[in-house]
Amino acid sequence: MGLLTILKKMKHKEREMRLLMLGLDNAGKTTILKKFNGEDVSTISPTLGFNIKTLEHRGFKLNIWDVGGQKSLRSYWRNYFESTDGLVWVVDSADRLRLEDCRRELSALLLEERLAGATLLVFANKQDLPGALSKDAIREAMALDDIKTHHWCIIGCSAVTGENLLMGVDWLLDDIAARIFTAD
């Protein structure tokens, strides 16, 4: 039995989840986090380091880690992988020139052993911009359909307007909950 059962039961009791939010710089990770938490998004500056937010949603306690996406910070991403239940990958849908970079970084992440059990939510952010690619175009460009190792879902959203943020997080919670809280 048992260690796993015990762990699951402990988690169940706390109903706690750890979400890791990553993506290239300027994707809108911090804006998503703050908007979701109902904070002012007009004063956000580029993340030098990381932000953590703990918030309650649907009876779950979410620990959301938002780590800066600058090139010089990406090598530190792996310090945050441990015991991640859900990975939120944020894409700037209007940044066509770096989509290939974006795909490469994500596919490297998915090979990480410590993220092997995590559910993947891809936010195709900045849908409010007129030149933004649709979520289906992003899905194709990022070759998401080739992902067989993780549960995943892509959702078009706008951190500025808040559109679809809730829907994405709800999907993520449902998927994680179905996985880790079904021990009994």
């Binding site: 710089d25 007009s42 500056s45 580029p46 090139k71």
Partner: peptide, 8 residues
């Protein structure tokens, strides 16, 4: 209004 950054 918020901040500028430079990298490389």
């Amino acid at each position: 209004t918020s901040r500028a950054i430079v990298e490389d």
